[in-house]
Simulated assay, not measured.
Amino acid sequence: MIFLRACKAFGHSQEAAIENALLQVSKKLIKSGYKILLYVWGSDREASKRLYDKLNDPLNVTYDPSLYSEEELIEKLSVSSLSINFKLHANILSLAGNVPCIALGYRFKVFDLFQSLGLENLVVSTDSDTLALDIMEGIREIELNNEKIIEQYKNRNEQFSPLIIEPIKNNFTVD
C-alpha cells in the first residue's frame, strides 16, 4: 500500500503540474500492483478528493477524509510500503512510523531535514520538469533499500535526540 498525501500547493505556481505528476505516478503504481490510500491533513480535502476522482479507481484507491491524531496516523501508516508527502510533518510521521517516504520538496526546510538525515535522495523538488520520473526514481530507491533507509533515519534520530533534549532538561541554560 502507498500512503499518499495530496495537498493544495498554496501559492505554488506549479500546483497543476504537481497534481498531474501525482496522477501519473499513482496510475503507474496501481498497474504495478500497489494500493493507494489518499489521506488529508487540515485544508487539503479538496486537493485529495480531486486526485481521487481523477484516478477513478475505487478498487485500488481509497480516499480517507478523516483527520487523525499523530498516533492514529502513524498506526495507519504502518501498513504501508512507503508514503509520498507534500508537507514536512507528514514525512516526519512517516519516518517515525518506520515507513520510508518521498518528500515533495517545496521549501528549504524539507530539503534541509532530509539532508540532515542523510536521506536527500528521497526529496523531489516540486519545481522539477521531470517530477513524475523523479518520484518514480525515489520509489525504486525505497523498494531496493527500504530497511537501510529506516535504519539511517533511526541512527540519525539517536544521534540528534540527545542534542534536542539536553537543553530542555537544563531549562535552556548553558554551564
Score class of each variant (00 low, 15 high):
R5N: 14
A6K: 00
Q14E: 13
A16S: 11
L38M: 09
I18F: 01
A17K: 14
I30G: 00
V40T: 13
K8E: 13
K54D: 10
V61Q: 03
Y39Q: 08
N60E: 03
R45M: 03
Y39A: 05
S48N: 06
A47P: 09
I30S: 00
E46W: 14
C7W: 00
V25R: 03
L29G: 00
K49L: 15
E15G: 07
Q14H: 13
K27P: 00
E15F: 07
N60M: 12
Y52P: 01
S43L: 15
M1R: 13
G42D: 14
D53G: 02
N56C: 00
L38E: 01
V61R: 06
N20A: 15
A9F: 08
D53K: 02
W41K: 14
F3V: 08
K35C: 05
N60Y: 07
L29S: 00
N20G: 12
I30K: 01
L37F: 03
S48H: 06
Y34S: 10
W41M: 07
L23M: 08
A47W: 02
I2S: 02
Y34C: 12
L4H: 02
Q24Y: 03
N20D: 12
M1G: 03
M1C: 03
N60L: 09
L55E: 02
W41T: 00
N60F: 09
F3A: 13
K27I: 05
E15I: 00
V61Y: 11
K35D: 07
L37K: 04
L51R: 00
Q24R: 15
I2G: 04
K31D: 12
K49V: 07
F3M: 12
L55D: 06
I30A: 06
V61K: 04
W41H: 10
F10V: 15
L55W: 05
G42C: 04
V61M: 07
R45I: 10
N56F: 10
I30W: 01
S32G: 05
L23E: 02
Y52R: 04
P58I: 07
P58Y: 08
G33S: 12
L38I: 09
V40R: 07
F3R: 03
P58R: 10
R50K: 15
K27S: 10
R5V: 08
E19C: 06
S32Q: 15
L55K: 10
S13R: 13
V61E: 04
L29N: 01
Q24G: 02
L23Q: 03
I36D: 01
A16W: 12
V25Q: 04
A6F: 06
M1T: 06
